[in-house]
Simulated scan of single mutants.
Amino acid sequence: MTKVLWHITMSLDGFIAPEDDSVEWMFGHGAAGPLGMETMERLGAVLSGRRGYDLGNQPGEGERKLYGGMWSGPMFVLTHRPYDVPADSRFVFLSAGVADAVSTAKAAAGDRAVGILGADLARQCLDLGLVDEIVVHLVPALLGGGVRLFDGGAPVGLRKLRCDDSGQITDLRFEVVRA
């Protein structure tokens, strides 16, 4: 059965992006440990929201490849806003509902996992009972504001599966507990 994983980096105060949406705060603390590599290797497809796609593909900032360019595979973007797809795009744009987008990504992933990126899309997937695991790389930084990891959703029970230290970063893996 194809699992759906929410894979994310978070500050100690619970933010995945500061108010200016910069990413520099994530770096300079060392690399994620074995759990990060294992998670990346488990993925057969990635599903992102439009905001994450826009932030990761801003002109003038150079190419910021997913997982530092170490991962390749089907990448989907769920959006309800008009878009122009570059001719060389590695992304497939979807405009269906969240459940349909997850089903599309699962079909592409085959027997591997689907990685969900971002906060809002992940919250919607959690609300629909579509997320199986959450993998968080906890970075020793306090952002003080920005995009919260989880905001506005119904409570979700979790069971810790793993906790690793890799230098300054703490890697956490949780299973979503279903009633």
Rank of each mutant, 00 (worst) to 15 (best):
D84Y: 10
A45G: 13
A119Y: 02
V85M: 14
A107V: 05
G68E: 05
V102Y: 02
M26V: 07
L47N: 07
G33C: 11
R81A: 15
K106C: 12
G49P: 05
K106S: 15
G28L: 06
G33S: 11
D127N: 07
W71Q: 10
L121K: 00
G30L: 00
V98P: 04
L117M: 15
P59L: 04
Y53V: 09
G49M: 05
L128M: 12
A87C: 07
R51K: 14
E63L: 11
W71I: 12
P34S: 15
M70Y: 14
R90Y: 05
D54W: 06
G60F: 04
R90I: 03
G62I: 15
G30F: 00
L121R: 02
S103C: 12
R50T: 02
P59G: 04
D120S: 15
K65T: 07
Y83E: 13
F27R: 01
H29C: 01
L121S: 04
L94H: 00
G44R: 05
P86W: 10
S72G: 11
D120Y: 11
E41V: 05
F76K: 03
G110K: 15
G36I: 10
F76E: 06
A108Q: 04
L126C: 14
G62S: 12
S103I: 09
A45C: 06
N57A: 07
A119C: 09
L66D: 08
P74N: 11
E61D: 06
D84P: 00
G28D: 01
H29M: 01
I116L: 15
D111Q: 12
V92M: 09
E61H: 15
A101I: 00
I116E: 05
A32M: 10
P82K: 08
L121N: 01
E61T: 15
Y83P: 00
A105K: 07
L117H: 15
A108M: 04
G69E: 12
F76G: 01
S103D: 13
I116P: 06
A113K: 05
L47K: 11
M40Q: 14
A87H: 13
F91R: 02
G36A: 09
G44P: 13
Q58P: 01
G97V: 07
D120G: 15
V77N: 10
K106Q: 13
L35V: 09
R112Y: 08
L78S: 04
V102T: 06
M75R: 14
V114Q: 09
S89M: 07
A31M: 14
H80L: 01
C125Q: 03
G36K: 01
F93I: 00
L43A: 13
A99I: 04
E41W: 11
S72N: 15
F91H: 12
R81N: 12
G118Y: 00
R51C: 05
S103K: 13
V46M: 13
D127R: 12
F76L: 08
A109N: 02
C125P: 03
A109Q: 05
G129W: 09
C125Y: 04
A109H: 03
W71E: 07
A108K: 08
G44D: 10
L130T: 02
D84W: 02
S95C: 03
T79K: 01
E63V: 11
N57D: 09
R81H: 14
D54C: 04
M26R: 07
R123A: 11
V85G: 02
L35R: 10
V77P: 08
V98Y: 07
E41F: 07
L117D: 14
D120C: 02
